[in-house]
């Protein structure tokens, strides 16, 4: 087996093991109020970090992509108007796509 295949399969195994870890954690551990509160809040922190990075970075560089930011701004407006999930992401993607079609960003 080539070294490349070993790297591929090791990465796959490691990623899978990590996903499984949280699901097989003993329930009495999750009974700790602090751990439970951490588990509740951590997706909010991670997803907010992800939104920020996907909105304002490309690789390791902070970038201002006008079309992408306008798409996200349109999503925020849709959310403030209490639009359903489907509408929010269609509005965001359409805004970015139309701006790019018009030569922005």
């Amino acid at each position: 087996m080539s070294a490349m295949w070993i790297a591929v399969l090791a990465t796959a195994a490691g990623c899978y093991a990590l996903k499984l870890t949280g699901l097989i954690v003993p329930e009495r551990l999750l009974a700790s109020p602090r751990l439970r509160r951490f588990a509740e809040l951590v997706p909010v922190a991670l997803l907010a970090g992800l939104v920020a990075v996907q909105a304002g970075a490309k690789g390791s560089a902070l970038v201002l992509d006008p079309a992408r930011l306008a798409g996200l701004a349109a999503a925020v407006v849709a959310l403030l108007l209490r639009a359903p999930f489907l509408v929010v992401i269609v509005v965001a993607a359409a805004t970015a796509a139309l701006l790019r079609l018009a030569g922005v960003g």
Partner: peptide
């Protein structure tokens, strides 16, 4: 933009 918009909508 779908990813960030979706994550924002979901949180």
């Amino acid at each position: 933009v779908v990813g960030p918009a979706a994550f924002l909508a979901l949180i």
